Amino acid sequence: GKMTGIVKWFNADKGFGFITPDDGSKDVFVHFSAIQNDGYKSLDEGQKVSFTIESGAKGPAAGNVTSL
């Protein structure tokens, strides 16, 4: 299901970062391709987001990332 969290950091040049889930679980990798907006796909440190957990090739990653 949907989770919420805070963006820990995001490197716009490399197109990835990490989200710290509100439930205290392990930080989740986020790739820019998972960001659900029409414009420039980037996130800001400290931004609140909702997301799902998808299993990627390198382990769990955030999917369906939407800013709240």
Rank of each mutant, 00 (worst) to 15 (best):
Ala34Thr: 09
Leu68Thr: 10
Gly17Asp: 00
Ser25Thr: 09
Thr20Ala: 11
Gly17His: 00
Ile6Leu: 09
Asp23Glu: 12
His31Leu: 06
Phe18Arg: 03
Phe29Cys: 02
Val65Tyr: 01
Gly46Met: 05
Thr66Phe: 07
Lys48His: 10
Lys2Gly: 08
Tyr40Thr: 11
Thr4Tyr: 15
His31Val: 03
Gly5His: 00
Ile6Cys: 05
Leu68Met: 12
Pro21Glu: 02
Phe10Met: 02
Gln36Cys: 05
Val30Leu: 06
Thr20Leu: 07
Met3Phe: 13
Ile35Asn: 03
Pro60Gln: 12
Val28Asn: 01
Lys48Arg: 07
Ile6Ala: 07
Val28His: 02
Thr20Glu: 08
Lys58Glu: 11
Asp13Trp: 15
Leu43Asn: 01
Thr20Ile: 12
Lys48Cys: 04
Asp13Tyr: 13
Phe16Gln: 04
Gln36Leu: 13
Leu68Ser: 07
Asp13Phe: 15
Gly5Thr: 00
Asp22Lys: 08
Ile35Cys: 03
Ala62Lys: 01
Ala12Lys: 15
Lys48Ile: 10
Gln36Asn: 12
Thr4Leu: 13
Ser55Phe: 15
Ala61Thr: 12
Gly15Cys: 03
Gln47Val: 07
Gly1Thr: 14
Gly46Ala: 04
Thr66Asn: 12
Phe32Arg: 15
Asp44His: 15
Asp38Val: 13
Val65Asn: 01
Phe18Tyr: 07
Val65Phe: 01
Lys48Leu: 09
Gly5Ile: 00
Lys26Asp: 14
Gly63Glu: 11
Thr4Ile: 08
Val65His: 01
Gly39Asp: 11
Gln47Cys: 04
Phe18Gly: 02
Ala61His: 13
Asp27Ala: 07
Asp38Met: 08
Ala57Met: 13
His31Met: 05
Thr4Glu: 08
Pro60Val: 15
Leu68Phe: 09
Lys41Val: 11
Glu45Ser: 14
Lys48Met: 12
Ser25Gly: 10
Tyr40Lys: 09
Asn64Ser: 11
Asn37Arg: 06
Asn64Tyr: 10
Gly59Asn: 09
Gly63Trp: 13
Lys58Cys: 05
Thr52Glu: 10
Gly59Lys: 08
Val28Ala: 03
Gly39Asn: 14
Gly17Pro: 00
Gly5Leu: 00
Ile53Thr: 06
Lys14Gly: 08
Val28Ile: 12
Ala57His: 08
Gly59Val: 05
Phe32Ala: 11
Gly24Met: 08
Phe32Cys: 05
His31Phe: 08
Ala61Gln: 13
Gly15Phe: 03
Trp9Ile: 04
Phe18Glu: 03
Ala57Ile: 14
Thr66Glu: 12
Val28Gln: 02
Asp13Glu: 15
Glu45Thr: 15
Trp9Ser: 04
Ser67Thr: 15
Val65Ser: 01
Ser55Lys: 15
Thr66Ala: 11
Lys58Asn: 09
Leu43Ile: 07
Ile35Met: 06
Gly59Gln: 06
Gly1Lys: 09
Ile35His: 03
Val7Ser: 01
Lys2Asp: 08
Gly59Trp: 09
Leu43Ser: 01
Ala34Trp: 03
Lys14Tyr: 14
Met3Lys: 13
Lys2Thr: 10
Glu45Gly: 12
Ala61Asn: 14
Pro60Trp: 10
Ala34Glu: 09
Gly24Ser: 05
Gly5Ala: 02
Gly15Met: 04
Lys41Ile: 07
Ile19Gly: 00
Gly5Arg: 00
Phe16Met: 06
Ile6His: 09
Gln47Ser: 09
Gln36Ala: 10
Gly39Tyr: 11
Phe10Glu: 00
Thr52Val: 15
Ala34Pro: 02
Asp23Ser: 11
Asp44Arg: 15
Lys2Gln: 10
Pro21Leu: 09
Leu43Glu: 01
